[in-house]
């Protein structure tokens, strides 16, 4: 009987205990071989994973920057427009606030798939940089959600904090930076982590513009290996592990931030005990 090249390769590599095993084991291992091992196909997943992580990391940074800027514009306008005297400053803030609101409405009101396609096929039509298009699309999309998360964090801080900072002589921006934002971030960290996880999973649609991320890698393998289940299952497992890992990491960070003051006190308490002993 003539066997296919792939089958031949499988027969050559598989150990005897598999080949001599039951049929279901044979079938499963052949399918596994086609999905991950043959032609070093696992390399495609690794490459896709690299792109997914790169895309997520850069989009996260862009999203945070956009989110912080927009949230501060929105909060500043809401807090100060009644107090500000008419002038260039107020006019600029009014325009910035209006632009921010339009931005939030448009970004949150349209699907991210459509956004990334518009950015890649229309706005960046002359360029073929898929990663850049992905970073811009996901960064802008995430920025809109991050902005609202941070805005809620800033609004949750007692307004006495701003007054205390201002009364010491800090300017508005300096008070935001040293006093308001650190507290706001601590309060919204769980929501930000959630947004980060959503972003990580959302990048799975980057394949729509031909970016080979983790999901598209699985899709490509499906096309050449004629196996559906294992590539998709493998990719799902990788996403799940990533999410679990980042959740664990952020949980640690969060606990450190929250308990920071207590552990510090315990440390100084221990010191005193040592001195007493």
């Amino acid at each position: 009987m003539k066997v296919s090249e792939t089958m031949q390769a499988f027969l050559d590599t598989a150990p005897d205990w598999i080949l001599n095993g039951p049929e279901w084991l044979n079938e499963f291992c052949y399918s596994f071989f086609k999905s991950f091992i043959h032609d070093s196909r696992w390399m495609q997943y690794v490459e896709g994973l690299g792109n997914t992580l790169l895309l997520t990391a850069l989009a996260l940074v862009l999203g945070l920057i956009i989110g912080i800027v927009i949230s501060i514009i929105r909060v500043s306008w809401d807090n100060m427009h009644a107090e500000l005297r008419p002038g260039v400053g107020k006019f600029v803030l009014r325009i910035a606030n209006a632009i921010s609101k339009i931005y939030l409405t448009v970004i949150r009101g349209t699907p991210v798939v459509v956004q990334i396609m518009i950015i890649f096929f229309v706005i960046m039509a002359s360029s073929n940089n898929k990663i850049l298009a992905g970073v811009i699309a996901f960064g802008m999309n995430s920025g809109a959600y991050v902005a609202e998360i941070i805005r809620s964090g800033i609004m949750s801080i007692d307004k006495g904090q701003m007054e205390a900072g201002r009364s010491l002589g800090f300017g508005y921006v300096a008070t935001m930076r040293h006093i308001i934002l650190p507290q706001a971030f601590k309060n919204v960290l769980p929501a930000l982590v959630n947004e980060f996880i959503v972003l990580l999973k959302e990048t799975a649609i980057a394949g729509y513009v031909g970016l080979t991320d983790l999901t598209r890698a699985a899709n490509i393998v499906r096309g050449v290996a004629y196996v559906d289940f294992l590539p998709l299952l493998g990719v799902a497992v990788v996403y799940l592990i990533l999410v679990l890992f980042f959740t664990w990491l952020m949980g640690k960070l969060e606990r450190r931030l929250r308990v920071g003051n207590i552990s510090k006190q315990m440390r100084s308490g221990n010191k005193k005990k040592e001195v007493a002993a």
């Binding site: 005297r85 002038g87 201002r166 002589g169 800090f170 507290q183």
Partner: peptide, 27 residues
């Protein structure tokens, strides 16, 4: 007068509030 930087003057005017307004994230 808007021409004068209020932040510089506030440095010379300490203020104590009813609700203390200490910064809770700092020692």
């Amino acid at each position: 007068d808007k021409k004068n930087n209020i932040n510089v003057h506030r440095q010379k005017m300490g203020m104590v509030f009813q609700h203390f307004n200490l910064f809770p994230h700092k020692t």
